[in-house]
Design a protein around this nucleic acid. Structure first.
Length: 223
DNA sequence: AAAGTCGTCAACCGCCGTGGA
DNA sequence: TTCCACGGCGGTTGACGACTT
């Protein structure tokens, strides 16, 4: 483990505290619960372990499929991915990805260190690595992903991000989501979003994103 | 049986965005 | 407008059990 393990007593105190005072106000939790832990540790322990309805055990094939597809679209945005998988925590999904999926996919479509390059509808400002650093990928030009060693030639289109010019948007062609018989043409959807974004000054990005998430929710609910 | 290596995952770290003063 | 505290996030670490040599 990466730190000092929580004891049963600490878990009990934290749980009791959250039940009494509710979630939030994490800065007060250590004091209220009588724990010698920082606010972040308390929050993490609650979210990843103590919270009700947390699903334990191995991931189902459906969940894995969903993770793969969502990661392909969103990159390493584990909290958003976790939001689409009821009962699973972002930490669980991140660990699962790092232990299983990234290795499986390494050399194919996604690589752990720069997975964010793939299929992100909206570039994430600041933390996301600008594609300009990649010699073979220039702004506004089609590219062939270097990481795709299956030679599937996963081509995409780089579109300049309105908000942060260092963070291009990458949409993979032929990207779709499949789960059983369900099929969703996300590339087509992405194109609609991009078209809409071109017409805006960037201020509506959040709304577009929310719309997209809502569409995703409806789709998942329909499964 | 012992030593070395690998895989897993809970916990920590540091950064960022946001909201209030 | 600036500063600060806080919540939240993704990346990383490291302990420990399982497996291999």
């Amino acid at each position: 483990m990466g730190g000092i393990a929580w004891t049963e007593e600490e878990d009990y105190l934290l749980k009791k505290c959250i039940e009494q005072y509710g979630e939030g106000k994490w800065h007060r939790v250590p004091q209220l619960a009588g724990l010698n832990r920082c606010r972040k540790s308390c929050r993490l322990r609650w979210l990843n372990y103590l919270r009700p309805n947390i699903k334990r055990g191995s991931f189902t094939p459906q969940e894995v499929d969903l993770i793969l597809n969502l990661h392909n679209l969103l990159g390493n945005r584990w909290s958003i991915i976790a939001g689409r998988l009821p009962g699973r925590t972002a930490n669980d999904i991140k660990n699962y990805w790092n232990c299983h999926l990234s290795k499986k996919l390494n050399g194919q479509v996604v690589e752990k260190s720069n997975s964010v390059k793939q299929g992100s509808i909206f570039g994430k400002p600041s933390k996301w690595k600008p594609l300009q650093e990649e010699s073979s990928k220039s702004k506004g030009k089609e590219y062939v992903d270097d990481d795709d060693q299956n030679n599937n030639e996963s081509q995409g289109i780089l579109v300049e991000n309105n908000q942060n010019q260092n963070t291009p948007i990458v949409i993979e062609q032929n990207s779709s989501m499949s789960l059983g018989n369900m099929q969703m043409d996300l590339f087509q959807f992405d194109q609609q979003v991009l078209k809409a974004m071109e017409d805006e000054d960037g201020c509506n990005k959040r709304e577009l994103w929310d719309d997209w998430i809502s569409e995703m929710d409806l789709w998942i609910d329909s499964l």
